[in-house]
Every structure is written in structure tokens, then in C-alpha cells.
Simulated scan of single mutants.
Amino acid sequence: MYVRPAAAAAAAFLGFTLTLLGGTASYAATGPGSAAGTGTGTGAETGRAALGGPVVYAHRGASAYAPENTLDSIDLAMQMGFDWVENDVQRTKDGVLVVIHDDTLARTTDVEQRFPDRAPWKVQDFTAAEIARLDAGSWFGDEYAGASVPTLRRYLDRVQRNRQKLLLEIKKPELYPGIEEQTLKVLEEAGWLDARHVAQRLVVQSFSADSVRIVHGLRPDLVTAFLGTPAVADLPRYAAFTDRINPWHTTISADWVSAVHGLLGAHGKAMEVDTWIVDDAATARKVQDMGVDGIITNAPDVVQDAVGGF
């Protein structure tokens, strides 16, 4: 596990080591009918069978070691050898999509100091220019002072530069009518909706079934995921418009995972399960034994070591 003050040096060494061992998560395929390097099969076959372990997703980047949802966090995940990063998308007052988890800026920026009279500091109450002025790194550590809340477009460009893959969450869509179409527009403009990205490098997810359904309706070729743990009896309804069910790890069992795998998703392939948030080795091995296809984690190095040995 990383010691945060030495994160950059440790990350460089670990990333080099993982490269030598081939221990990245690049074996994951997300396409509706393709697996990395083969063009056939499903993500489940690739993630669990090819190397014997679930795909590891760096939640908000390598967020145990760098400020979440920042470019520093995804850069660190890349240096550590992890292809897949997860992020959250919300919208500013003037209609710009930004990458941040909470619907308030208070926890992860210095907004209370810069704008003391603007409580409760909601993302939707600030312009993109105002948000760009905020420090989104100092709360985590002095070495990250000056990190910013990235726009979605800037974030996509960095993920592309890093040759990473993206698990994109549309956050609280009920606050932002039309955010699904807008997110797809930004993805298109950034070059993320071509055949290769859609087949292997992008998954769109949400806690809102309606939002996932909208994305599927607008772009039926995209891989989508619903965040939650529907009852087994309700799973077929979700299979009509999504490819994955991504639950909190405390809410699942091996039988539930098997029930998801027993259904064909929106693209006619076996549905998959990517569970969250798992940050310790014991829990990682536990959900691996349940048969999950992916693990979403703040500490991807810890989880990868536990489930894959790389």
C-alpha cells in the first residue's frame, strides 16, 4: 500500500514493475461483443477467465493516494499500471460538465474560503469559471495544492493521453435535466464515441435506472451499467437496457452474482457484475470468490495484489 507523501516516487516504481509483469487491467473488454485482443467473447470471459481475477477499476482515480476525480488521481493510476478509471459527472450553473462526486463543492475544494457567502456551495450554483478557481487538492495534502476540478472535456483528453479506459458515472441526473444527451455530446466531441472506444474503452453508469435507460436509447451501442442491487426477480427488467449491474459489495452473495450472470443483457451477452467500494485484501478475495467480474476501488494496488498477484 502507498504512503501518501511518497506517492509519486512509489507510483513510478510500481508502474514500472507492473509493466514488466504485464499486470495492468488492460485485459478488460467492455464491448457488447468483444474481448481485448480477441474480438470475441464477453468482458466476463476476459476479466475472470483470462487471468483468473476480476478487472480492477481505480475509483475516482487512485483516490486513496491522490485527490479524487482530479487529473493527478488518474495520472497516478496510470503510473501504477491501471488502465481503468472511474469518475463522476455533474453540471455547472452555466451548463459545463465537470468531474466531481458530491453535488456540493465543500468537501473537496476551498470553496467555503473563496466564496463564504454562497452556502450550501452546490455545483449547480457556480459557473465553470468560478469552479476553475478552486483548489481541489490541498484538502488531501499539501503536495496537491492547486489541483483543480476538471471539466469533463479536459478529463477525457487526459484519459485519452494516458491511454486509459473510462467508467463514467452520471451523478444525480435528477438535478441536471438533459445531462445524458449532453454527456454523450461531449464524449462525441472528444472522440470517445468511435467504434474502438465504444467497444473497448468506455462504460456509462448511474444510480438512476431512468438515466441508464436514456443513455441506452440514445446510443444503443454503448455499454451501460446500473448502480445498485435489484432483487433477483427484478433483474430481467434491467437486462432490457443495461449490460451490467454494479452493486455495493455488502449487498451481494454468490447466488445473486450467479443470477445476474444467468441473464443476457442489452447486447445479448451474459450480464456482468462490478462491485464497489472494496479497499482491503480480505474483501477483495471474498467478492472474487463470489464470481464478480470487476472490483471498483480507491486502492487499486491493494486489490490487484489480492485478486491477481500482479
Rank of each mutant, 00 (worst) to 15 (best):
V89A: 00
P177C: 02
M290A: 06
A225F: 03
A7M: 12
Q304R: 15
A209P: 00
A25L: 12
T297N: 00
G146T: 01
E188A: 10
I74D: 06
A66T: 08
P32L: 14
A281G: 06
V278K: 14
R244H: 13
F226K: 11
G191I: 03
A12N: 15
L264E: 11
A9M: 06
G53S: 12
I74S: 06
L71Q: 05
T283I: 00
I131T: 04
H249E: 13
V260S: 00
M1T: 04
R133L: 10
Q304F: 12
P236H: 09
V3M: 05
T24H: 04
N246Q: 13
P300I: 13
I296C: 06
L18D: 12
D234F: 05
F310Y: 15
T104S: 08
G95D: 05
A35C: 14
N87H: 02
H261V: 15
A284P: 02
T283P: 10
M290N: 14
S63H: 11
D157L: 06
S258P: 08
T70A: 06
D83H: 11
L263H: 04
A259H: 15
D88V: 03
G39M: 12
R153C: 00
H261W: 15
I100H: 06
A35S: 13
Q182M: 10
D194E: 03
A147S: 05
P54M: 06
E180S: 11
V204T: 04
G47A: 13
D75F: 10
G217C: 06
V98L: 05
D293E: 13
T38A: 15
A8Q: 06
R114V: 10
G137H: 07
A106K: 15
T30C: 00
L263V: 04
G178H: 10
D243Q: 01
A259F: 11
E181I: 10
A64P: 03
G37A: 07
S206V: 00
A8Y: 13
E272A: 12
S253W: 13
L168T: 00
T92I: 00
L218T: 12
A58Y: 01
Q164Y: 05
H267R: 03
A50R: 12
V55T: 03
E112R: 11
V278N: 14
I170M: 06
A29T: 02
